Amino acid sequence: MVIIGLGNIGSLLNKRLKILKIKTLLCDLFKKCKKNKDKFVSLKTIIDKSNIISLYVTLLNNSKNKTLHLFNKNRINLLKKNTILINTSRGEIINNKYLLKFLKEKKIST
């Protein structure tokens, strides 16, 4: 399981998954990734390797921090066909135009 966004909700989910002994990969877009018991990796690595991705990020659209269309055409294209993408963030985190296109073309499963 992958958790993108380690604010209150993402961190709480991570704690609960640890109790259940479910391995997680963590990615926080605005903090430096630390290497300790939790393994932080790049967003590209997460997309390439994951079967379940759960998003907990704030919608931002400024020059310093941008999450608008975080999952754009290129990133959606990296998803494996059987990936489950859970977006608990704002809808605009995923470019729905390309997500719909990829679903219709069966490049990713529904």
Rank of each mutant, 00 (worst) to 15 (best):
N77G: 04
N62Q: 09
K32S: 09
T24C: 11
Y56P: 00
L29I: 15
R75V: 00
L55I: 10
L25M: 10
L59T: 14
L43E: 04
I47V: 15
K23R: 10
C33M: 06
N61A: 02
L29K: 13
K18Q: 12
K39D: 09
K34G: 05
N61D: 12
Y56L: 04
K34T: 14
S63V: 12
H69M: 02
L60R: 13
R75L: 01
I22S: 08
I22F: 03
K44A: 04
K32L: 07
V57G: 01
N61M: 03
C33E: 14
F30A: 12
H69S: 07
C33N: 14
L68H: 11
K35D: 13
S54I: 04
L55M: 11
N36T: 14
T24L: 04
L17W: 06
K44H: 03
F71S: 01
K35G: 07
C33Y: 08
K21C: 05
T24R: 08
L55D: 02
L43T: 01
N72K: 03
I19K: 12
K49D: 13
C27L: 10
N72D: 15
K31D: 08
C33K: 14
L70Q: 07
K39V: 13
L26N: 13
K37A: 02
K39Y: 09
C27V: 15
K80W: 04
F71P: 00
N77E: 14
K31G: 00
I19W: 02
N77M: 05
L20F: 10
N36F: 05
N51S: 12
N51Q: 12
N74Y: 05
T58P: 06
K31E: 13
R16L: 07
S63G: 01
L43I: 03
K73L: 07
N36Q: 10
Y56R: 08
I47A: 05
N72F: 01
L78A: 06
L29A: 01
L79C: 01
L60E: 15
K34A: 06
D28N: 15
K23F: 04
K34D: 13
N62P: 00
V57C: 07
L43D: 02
L29C: 02
K32N: 12
S50A: 12
I22Y: 05
L59E: 11
H69R: 03
K21L: 03
K49V: 07
T67H: 05
K18S: 11
S63Y: 08
L55K: 05
V57M: 10
L78P: 01
L29T: 03
L26R: 09
I47D: 02
T24Q: 10
K73F: 06
S54M: 01
